[in-house]
């Protein structure tokens, strides 16, 4: 039994879907028809979209991507813990903790100000150059340190903005219940702040997933480097396209999943 309005809306929806489908088809059709007409298409196609090379390099690139995933996986907890520590240090109110505030401020300015790739070089080659023995001079360790330094600085800033965005009355309410500053931060402010910055941090993690590839500059053969090796040996850019596809296979579902989690969180409470 449908109301007049429901019938009208169903009609509108059908019309909208039809239009969306048609315009998508037209755009795709134009792309498929027009791009190959470009004079350099044949060369670009064989250089970037060589099916045989795609199939040949895919397994090795996928294997190399496991290295990216591993570096990412052990970096994230370190980044989160350090970022939180720095954010808290920056917000320290007690005068005794003033040095920590200063340290936090310098840390954030410094490591957000230096391009990641420079830090990867400086830390990845520089610190082991001081004479650390194996395995402590591994580029995996010091490359990770460089990523953690940069990204924890960003995460610290994001968290701090989240902490500051929590209304002062929340803190007042907690203090008036007799909670200590520590407990107020831990149970009242931080849980809200962290939730609020989940989207910003998700973007950060997607960026990190891509920046893991910078470690290749100091030796590790992760996916981008493996693609570069193939490119060099085969004189063809298709391996980069393979790498891009593999990246997308991970980052797109990851961001979608984060969106889903956030929406679910919101829906559960309304």
């Amino acid at each position: 039994m449908s109301t007049r309005r429901a019938a009208y809306e169903a009609r509108q929806r059908r019309r909208a879907n039809l239009l969306a489908g048609a315009s998508t088809l037209v755009v795709l059709g134009l792309l498929v028809l027009l791009v190959p007409l470009a004079p350099g298409w044949a060369a670009v196609k064989s250089s970037f979209f060589d099916g045989e090379i795609f199939a040949r390099t895919f397994p090795d690139l996928a294997r190399a991507f496991l290295i990216n995933i591993a570096i990412f996986a052990w970096s994230v907890p370190l980044i989160m813990v350090l970022g939180l520590a720095i954010a808290l240090a920056r917000g320290a109110r007690a005068p005794v903790l003033f040095p920590m505030r200063i340290f936090g401020a310098i840390y954030v300015d410094l490591f957000r100000g230096i391009p990641v790739v420079l830090l990867v070089y400086l830390v990845g080659f520089g610190i082991p150059g001081l004479g650390l023995p194996r395995p402590w001079n591994s580029p995996y360790i010091w490359g990770t340190v460089a990523l953690v330094l940069t990204y924890s600085a960003y995460v610290a800033e994001v968290l701090r903005s989240g902490i500051e965005s929590i209304h002062a009355s929340q803190r007042n309410a907690a203090i008036c219940l007799g909670l200590s500053e520590r407990d107020t931060m831990r149970y009242v402010i931080l849980p809200q702040a962290i939730r609020r910055v989940v989207p910003a941090n998700m973007n950060m993690l997607v960026a990190l997933q891509k920046d893991v590839a910078l470690l290749s500059f100091i030796g590790p053969v992760e996916i981008l480097r493996q693609a570069g090796i193939f490119k060099s040996l085969l004189a063809n850019f298709t391996p980069y396209v393979v790498a891009a596809v593999i990246f997308l296979c991970v980052t797109v579902p990851a961001t979608r999943y984060a969106d889903y989690l956030m929406n679910r969180d919101r829906d559960a409470r309304t």
Binding site: H167, S169, Q170, N172, A173, A174, C176, Y187, V188, P191, Q192, R195
Partner: peptide, 11 residues
């Protein structure tokens, strides 16, 4: 003490 608003912890 109870305030005018924003008393409860929303999370």
């Amino acid at each position: 003490i109870v305030f005018q608003s924003f008393n409860l912890f929303p999370h």
